[in-house]
Every structure is written in C-alpha cells, then in structure tokens.
Design a protein around this nucleic acid. Structure first.
Length: 250
DNA sequence: AGCATTGTTTCACA
DNA sequence: TTGTGAAACAATGC
C-alpha cells in the first residue's frame, strides 16, 4: 500500500515509540538491511532512544539524539510499521526494534522490498509532493519529453507519488497521463499541483490512497465516476495506468 | 501455470 | 552528458 499517505501514517506510528530505550534489534535480513551485515544496525542502536521521526515523500528517517546515528526506513511495495503488535508469522517482520518494558516496532513486509539502513543517503530525493511550492513545482514537473505520469512517479523530481496516487491526481486534474510533461501550460501545472495536494490530503485523512474517488473504478471494465465513459488502460511510465479518455484527452 | 503487483535501483541506449 | 525506458529485485495473490 505504501505511497505518501501510507508513509505519513508509518511516520506517525514511529512517533508512538519515541523516547523508549532500545534493548534489542533484529537486523538479520541481509537484503532489507543491505549493505549492512547482521548486527551492524543493532550495534548502532542498542542502548539509544528514537528522538524524532521524519519523512520526505515515501522515505522515512528517525533520529536517535545528538550523538546517535539516523535510522532510514522505506516501506517498499508492501511494507508497514507495526507498533506493539505480536510478532508476524513467518519472517514477515523484516526488521524490528525491541524496547525496554516489552514494546516493539517492526517493519512488516510480506514482499521484502522495504529497507532499513543506518545513515541513509536521501540526497537524490526531490521535495515532498504535498509540500512543494508553486514555483518549484512548475519548474521541476513541467519539463522533459517523458509522459506526465512518469514525471510524477520520478522520486527525484518530487517525492511521494506512486502508481495509484498518480492516476487519482491526473483524473482529478483532467490531464492525460501520456502528455509530455514539458508541454503543460502554467495553468495546467498549477491545477495539477492543487489536485495533487487535495488528493494527498484526502488520502491521509481517510486512511490511504485506496480511498480515492477514482479508485473504485480503477479496474478492468471500470467507468469514469464523472461522465461514465469506459476507462482506458495501458502501461505508462512502466506502470499499469487507467484514465478517462474523454475527461483526460491527449 | 502464468501473470500482475500501491517501489526503487541499475543498466542500456539515444 | 543527460534523459528516458526497460529489466531486475522478492514474494504473494489471482
């Protein structure tokens, strides 16, 4: 599920465990914790406390005090943060912290594409999609020959938009996912930013990207919630894409 | 059985 | 060199 709204929910979950002393770390999954060897993250964190939780787009990081390292987390394709829940079946808890008193925080990820890393390098990540200002949005999104949807999905351009939020936003803004990003007018870019912020805000409030107005129709045989036109379906930006060919021409 | 998947990184190519 | 697109990654569900 993880796109920006889910990552924000995960950040809020992490905030619940701030201040607790870390007494044990499960970092045995060498794929999720790459490039660290087992025990490296544990050695960096045991005895410390998480002091603040941050997010840019889908990328999370947690501070451990002035002299402590940062812990970077990413939910991948299917991860979530589980706080004070019983340990997951199998090895679905790919990374976990245990706290004094018995509490626990786990990166629960059936797909195993999440990440946990000490001192993450997020220098390539663009500004948060829900926070980026109007002028920066115009400059960063409104360029290039790639399809607009591919531009929105590029985390180095703006961070946080995933496949579903992209389709939801483009539908709300009545823009074609296939139009070259550099061909958008200033008015269209401003409209896109406004709808992106609104769609993101709604998703955070309502519990995730799947609560979007476009989402119930986003399936084979679906029709546009506004005009009833059968939706088009194709691969754009490497992802399956649904849009209304009447409301979003191009 | 085969295919698709709400994400990211790497690699090939123009 | 820069931008773009496809493949790889791991595991699960239809």
């Amino acid at each position: 599920m993880p796109e920006l709204p889910e990552a924000e929910r995960a950040r809020q979950q992490i905030e619940r465990v701030l201040g607790r002393e870390i007494v044990a770390v499960d970092d045995r999954d060498t794929y999720v914790c790459r490039p660290h060897a087992p025990g490296e993250i544990a050695a960096a964190l045991v005895g410390r406390r998480l002091t603040s939780a941050h997010r840019r787009g889908k990328f999370l990081w947690v501070e451990t005090g002035d002299d402590g390292p940062e812990l970077g987390l990413h939910l991948g394709m299917a991860g979530r943060i589980a706080v004070d829940e019983p340990e997951a079946p199998r090895h679905w808890d790919r990374f976990a912290l245990e706290f004094a008193g018995g509490g626990r925080m786990a990166l629960r990820d059936r797909r195993r594409l999440g990440r946990a890393v000490i001192e993450p390098d997020y220098s390539h990540v663009g500004p948060d999609a829900a926070e980026v200002g109007r002028d920066v949005f115009r400059e960063r999104v409104g360029r290039g020959s790639a399809p607009l949807k591919a531009r929105l999905l590029d985390q180095g351009v703006i961070a946080g938009v995933g496949n579903l939020l992209a389709d939801e936003t483009l539908w709300r803004a009545k823009l074609s996912p296939k139009v070259p990003a550099g061909e958008l007018s200033v008015e269209e870019l401003d409209r896109l930013r406004r709808e992106l912020r609104a769609a993101t805000r709604d998703a955070i409030r309502n519990g995730g990207v799947h609560t979007g107005r476009f989402m119930p129709s986003r399936e084979k045989g679906g029709t546009c919630p506004r005009c009833g036109t059968p939706l088009a379906r194709d691969t754009v930006g490497g992802r399956t894409t649904y849009w209304c060919p009447r409301d979003q021409p191009g």
